[in-house]
């Protein structure tokens, strides 16, 4: 399943990049995640636990998140391998940071992700998977964007 989307941040490209590389900020922005714990012996890899609740449906997921192919400050790859609720979720996204040509204080993040979900969620939730993934991405990026706003008003 391919997922695409974009989100515009009110910040220049470098500050947006710094934010996206800040694991504390990422953990706080990821829906249901408390913290990212570095995987020992690996670079740019973290373990995470997420407790997600969407309507009547909810559960705990565990997984490993990694970042690679860094091309500061314009592009990187984010990979997630997780499991929970008798399902396996794998996804990899190329995230691009595009500076706004008219306004250097705006950066558009654009992602193209390939996600694979198997197990129970795929069997019973097929009609909702894509919309749920889109909602989670939107929540993640808008939470990050809020952090930027509160920083600049300090």
């Amino acid at each position: 399943m391919e997922l695409t989307g974009k989100y515009t941040f009110e910040a220049d490209q470098q500050s947006t990049w710094d934010l996206l590389m800040n694991t504390k900020a990422i953990a706080a922005a990821m829906p249901g995640v408390e913290e990212l714990i570095p995987v020992e012996g690996a670079e740019n890899q973290w373990r995470a636990e997420a407790s997600l609740k969407i309507g009547a449906i909810g559960g705990t997921y565990t997984g490993v998140i990694s970042m690679s192919e860094h091309d500061e400050p314009s592009k990187y790859r984010l990979t997630v391998e997780g499991e929970g609720q008798a399902s396996i979720i794998n996804g990899t996204a190329v995230i691009e940071l595009l500076p706004n040509s008219d306004d250097s204080n705006k950066t558009t993040i654009q992602w193209v992700a390939e996600a694979n979900i198997s197990g129970k969620l795929a069997r019973v939730g097929q009609r909702l998977i894509k919309a749920t993934a889109n909602m989670m991405s939107k929540r993640f990026f808008s939470a990050l964007a809020k952090m930027l706003e509160s920083d600049s008003t300090e």
Binding site: I57, G58, G59, K120, V124
Partner: peptide, 20 residues
């Protein structure tokens, strides 16, 4: 704890263990 009304959304989700 969750409210139970007619159970026609909640109980199917619980039987699938998507809601516990």
């Amino acid at each position: 704890a969750k409210i139970l009304a007619g159970g026609h959304s909640l109980l199917p989700a619980m039987k699938l263990r998507l809601s516990e």
